[in-house]
Write a protein that binds this DNA or RNA. Sequence first.
DNA 1: CTTGACAGTAAACGTTCGTTCACCTATAAT
DNA 2: ATTATAGGTGAACGAACGTTTACTGTCAAG
Lengths: 197, 197
Amino acid sequence: MTKDLRENRLKARIRDIADFYHHKGRMPSFSEIGGMAGIKSKNAVYKLVNKLEKLKVLARDERGRLIPGSIASSVKILGTVEAGFPGAAEEELSDTLSLDDLLVKNPQSTFMLKVSGYSMSEAGILPGDMVIVDKKQAPKSGDIVIAEVDSEWTIKYLDKKGDDVTLIPANPKFTPIKPKKELKIAGVVTAVIRKYR
Amino acid sequence: MTKDLRENRLKARIRDIADFYHHKGRMPSFSEIGGMAGIKSKNAVYKLVNKLEKLKVLARDERGRLIPGSIASSVKILGTVEAGFPGAAEEELSDTLSLDDLLVKNPQSTFMLKVSGYSMSEAGILPGDMVIVDKKQAPKSGDIVIAEVDSEWTIKYLDKKGDDVTLIPANPKFTPIKPKKELKIAGVVTAVIRKYR
DNA sequence: CTTGACAGTAAACGTTCGTTCACCTATAAT
DNA sequence: ATTATAGGTGAACGAACGTTTACTGTCAAG
């Protein structure tokens, strides 16, 4: 068996394990890996797993149980548009990340919200976009926040100058808001997501 | 023990299991759940797991092994800004989803790219934004695509009229591109992500 | 030609797993 | 007052798990 064939087979096996993990939400057992890879002996699987562990494709607990390594993450990160494009070297296994990990620091205090108005469209937040909001982060001046002003919820820039608080829309057609009595800030917008299909 | 206390304890246990899953990338075993929850008997854990299964917090394989249910997902989905805000009923366990699942259909053929120019800023795609690109999806007219025109990579709207193909920027300050010889389309932009902090 | 590394089969082993049984004790409902 | 029901202890059991040892064949390099 030639070298290329061996590498391709390894990649196919990694892909199988990754697919398994993404579809089922757990790592396959040794026998399941054996089944997918067409390996009858558990020892062969054992050696394969050790190799994949060195490749950081997967890892192990302090208890020795399999946990995902690089395959946990679903998206490969490539370069910049209009700054050259990684054409040949696409097939790297490395440099992947999970969007959940990237965008959500505190799952417990984070939620998602659909944007409906045009008041932030100049900041690239359009109606239909989803914003990811963290309730626990302390809002600072300049942040985009979800706020309740006079019993209505809006998304705006937060402008803080001492005790003077203003909510500023990105769209100049809308007017800045000075809360009359109370200003409740539901959370800080940590990310924006737009889905095309 | 009163009703409220029991519910709170259940919620705390669900949170513990969710945290375990998010930190380790796998579901805890029965004994590990027992350890976290302060339960000494495996039977008690067994009953707890069955209850959580009915609550769709977790699920089981066809092999009977634990897989995450609603806790797999990290973000709760709430309503719309400027359409009322779920104030009291926040603490729902339901209606959560994983951003990976939401944004990535085919992990194998999907990658991420950072945008650098202003050519799509009118479509809400600003420099610094990340676009999620699927190589396998067939590009249709109206899609935003990553394309190589005359050995340069760009992000543009795809306009197809029969054999007549044009790449149209969203920003009117940029001019549409008619590829002279070859047009390679690297993939279709399926989502845009902007991270604030 | 020989040697060493690699990939696999096969069998055996102790551990841990999830399940089940019997029993107990509070709370909530009748 | 009595009865269900929910939540828990403790022990036992077979099945599945990951690991280990011993052996085999197949290339590639010396």
